[in-house]
Amino acid sequence: MPASEFALEISNLVKRFARPAVDGLNLRVRSGEFYALLGPNGAGKTTTLRIVAGLLQPDRGDVSIFGIDALRDPVAAKSVLAWVSDEPMIYDKLTPLEYLEFVAGLWGVDARIAQSRARELLGWLELGPHADTRCEGFSKGMRQKVALAGALVHDPKLIILDEPLTGLDAGSARQVKKVLAERVQAGCTVIMTTHILEVAERMAERIGVIASGKLIAEGTLEELRRRAGKNNSTLEDIFLDLVGPSDIAA
């Protein structure tokens, strides 16, 4: 695999549905970085990340994951990537361990390594006592944690999460944040969209703000503050200044 400074490089990305969802987007996320992608509803965040994950075809543009052209060699790109959506998609009739065995099988992880990782992950996420219980009776938080464990069991280099904390209780949200922080410390790259600005403020090294399919601001929290000319303001104030009331209404 070619060594690359960037975990993700997006150039001139365009995707139109009834109207442009992503409109000439350029974005670079460094390897080993925790990157938060913010924006009002309909800004193009999810569409962008679904294109990166190989779930949508763009109309135009380039997507590179660790130097791999994700549009030309999607299988290679997918092998280092994990996708977690806001609605955990797991199988009700499988247990968490069986789910992780299935995911590990899809990514071709050695069975012994996968089993050891699976037990470790379920322990971290406090799902150990439920490892052999079918997921059908699980709460939203438990399901999201199973989905997250699935994303981590094949040890991806890039984790993309679309609103992973939606609907989680405080305890579950803290566990998810802790696991993600540990992954970044271990060298993994995390890209996350969230409407919970406090999470982005506390966890992300860099923040990108997207509106109408374009990246309108990017940088660390300090850089964004300087750019807004408000040194003590919160991310929420900066965000609202950037996107404006009309975009929020959209």
């Binding site: 199988y91 009700d92 499988l94 247990t95 065995e101 099988g105 996968a114 079918r134 009776g137």
Partner: peptide, 28 residues
């Protein structure tokens, strides 16, 4: 839906991605 416990899983099965998909379909 209740909590249905399966027999404790001892060993993960290996094999190809296709084998994992087939097993999953049959189990479900």
């Amino acid at each position: 839906a209740g909590n249905v416990r399966q027999r404790a899983k001892r060993k993960f099965r290996g094999g190809s991605a296709a084998a994992a998909l087939r097993r999953k379909e049959w189990t479900l």
